[in-house]
Design a protein around this nucleic acid. Structure first.
Length: 554
RNA sequence: UGUCCGAUGGUGUAAUGGCAACACUGCAGAUUUUGAUUCUGCCUUUCCAGGUUCGAAUCCUGGUCGGACAACCA
């Protein structure tokens, strides 16, 4: 209806708050990852949302590491997270850590104890769970719930001083064991962990729980809009309870539906398993849905941002078709990548009427979508290699590639006609013989001939050997997590297909790690960092759409 | 037999009481020295039942279905 782009529900809330001057017109969001794994495509939605919203409405965004659990967290993850966010193109106003607030958080806890709103519980984890009730049954009070303020204060101090072992005591908020909201049934605030923290070292042996750290961290930073995923919705009453009892800045939490992609998994726990059990080569394996994996695969920040924009924001569960992600990267790379020719499965082709020993230099368009991109030199001679699948002994209907008697155009070169082919002892085709038409040279074609098909090729003497890694979806089913049994049993055994005998045109020699190309008729590829010792290795980012392959499947 | 949240084409997302639309996918065609790109057309949609209203995808009631919540994880 309207020509204006409609706003998603978060944009509407923020716009309303900013224009009404709710926080003095101020807007501050935050992105709060836990440094216990690498960021994935789902996080990129959250990143684009938090940073994008701030950008759009004149605010800022803090990066805050939610590092309240020293046993799972590591600086390796901190570094990768910062790298990924910067790579995506976003700038944070500040980098903070929840651990920056450990002293304040401790004082908040003391304050609640003094108000009679928190107590030290000697129960074991099992005992606490047993008294917690279930979502449909109320819980029961802990026998330690009515300790005096003085005793709680003393015990909590002793917890901090390291007088107790892990698990011996916890600090709990005193709220309501019968609350229909499980999170309000005297939630844990602090637990004892004699563990080394990646930032605070051995200063602490008690660490705040997420619920006791997150909301207050937002409040300490004066975050105006605390945006997170739907599973934290039931935490919001607790978040607000702490803010109210501690009289802190009233940050408000808003929840949106997390991104799900089909044919992959998105939980850090599962991704970590794939890494640890070597189903992939690492967090940045090009098949991983991690940001570092997508980067190595050849995805651009622009394409991921476009994807985040296209999937939209709402509060209902969703599973996005990975085809949309592929559309976004094709759209970007079609406009922006240089073209080159690479033959994956080489088949020798001899042009019998072409002078032996002669080489001529032809011109190839670098990018037909970009007039400024110019041309490159491509050598041509009597001996070439073409794609094995571009030749057939017997042409079927609608087939317009090479077959005896058929003509095709060699891209950027001449039209040729296939005259014969050579088999080896076992019947494999090892050579194709053709005649070329000298007047059909690309750009100055006066032959009047018409070839329906166009195929790519490389010149035999100048082609460079390259390795090409063809990737397919990591899993064979749309939603591995919802299938019976172990999700790993649904891994796609063909998710990586190595073409180690591929040949590339000589212009590729100067390609550097990360450079992106469209290999004509094949797909988009980028140079992998494994390229060493002069041999180039290319990752296939995504294949070109292939309506011929589709036709053949029918 | 709890609380909270949600339900619009195959997948997502709009429409904010007034003609259900956009993108992706799929199908058909045109163009093409990439069976790519581009362009054109087409298929397909408001969970159900009541109610309010001149008028309901939208508001109300009741159902149905789906999701979240019972870690000393975040």
């Amino acid at each position: 209806m309207s020509t204006e782009k409609s706003l998603n529900f978060l944009e509407e809330i923020v716009k309303e708050d900013v224009t009404s001057g709710k926080h003095g017109g101020r807007l501050l969001t935050r992105f709060p990852p836990e440094p216990n794994g690498y960021l994935h495509i789902g996080h990129s939605k959250s990143i684009c949302l938090n940073f994008g919203l701030a950008q759009q409405f004149g605010g800022q965004t803090n990066l805050r590491f939610d590092d309240t659990n020293p046993v799972t967290e590591d600086t390796e993850y901190v570094d990768s997270i910062m790298e990924d966010i910067a790579w995506l193109g976003f700038k944070w106003a500040n980098v903070f850590y929840a651990s920056d607030y450990f002293d304040q958080l401790y004082n908040f806890a003391v304050k609640l104890i003094e108000q009679g709103l928190a107590y030290v519980d000697d129960s074991s984890a099992e005992e606490i769970a047993a008294l917690k009730g279930t979502p449909t049954e109320p819980g029961k009070d802990s026998p330690f719930r009515s300790r005096s303020i003085e005793e709680n204060l003393s015990l909590f101090t002793r917890m901090r001083n390291g007088e107790f072992k892990d698990g011996e005591k916890v600090l709990r908020a005193k709220i309501d064991m019968a609350s229909p909201n499980m999170h309000l049934r005297d939630p844990l605030m602090y637990r004892i962990k004699h563990a080394h923290h990646h930032r605070t070292g051995d200063k602490w042996c008690i660490y705040p729980m997420y619920d006791f750290a997150h909301g207050q961290s937002d409040a300490i930073e004066n975050i105006t809009h605390s945006i997170c995923t739907l599973e934290f919705e039931v935490h919001r009453p607790l978040y607000e309870w702490f803010i109210k009892k501690l009289d802190l800045y009233p940050s408000r939490q808003y929840e949106f539906a997390r991104l799900n992609l089909n044919y992959t998994v998105m939980s850090k726990r599962k991704l970590l398993q794939l890494v640890n059990e070597k189903h992939v080569t690492g967090w940045d394996d090009p098949r991983m849905p991690t940001i570092s994996g997508l980067r190595r695969r050849g995805y651009t920040p622009e394409s991921i941002r476009a994807f985040a924009e296209k999937v939209g924001v709402s509060r209902r569960d969703n599973i996005i078709d990975v085809g949309l992600l592929e559309f976004c990267i094709r759209e970007d790379l079609n406009k922006n990548s240089l073209r080159a020719m690479v033959v994956m499965d080489p088949l020798k082709l001899i042009i019998t009427n072409y002078e032996e020993g002669k080489t001529e230099i032809l011109k190839g368009e670098n990018n037909p979508e970009d007039e400024q991109s110019g041309t490159r030199d491509i050598p041509f001679s009597r001996e070439l290699f073409i794609e094995h699948e571009d030749f057939k002994e017997v042409a079927e209907k609608k087939y317009f590639r090479l077959a005896p008697g058929l003509m095709v155009r060699l891209k950027s070169a001449y039209i040729i006609r296939c005259d014969s082919f050579v088999n080896d002892e076992s019947g494999n085709i090892i050579e194709v013989h053709c005649t070329y038409f000298p007047e059909s040279r690309s750009g100055s074609d006066t032959s009047g001939l018409q070839a329906k098909g166009v195929i790519h090729w490389v010149e035999a003497n100048t082609a460079i050997p390259v390795e090409v890694r063809l990737y397919d979806r990591l899993f064979g089913v749309e939603d591995p997590s919802s299938e019976e049994g172990d999700f790993k049993s649904y891994l796609n055994p063909h998710s990586l297909d190595m073409k180690s005998k591929a040949l590339g045109e000589p212009s590729l020699k100067k390609a550097a790690v990360g450079d992106k190309f469209q290999f004509l008729r094949k797909g988009y590829f980028c140079v992998d960092r494994d390229s060493v010792g002069g041999k180039l290795i290319f990752n296939r980012t995504v294949p070109l759409k292939d309506s011929w392959a589709k036709e053949q499947k029918k």
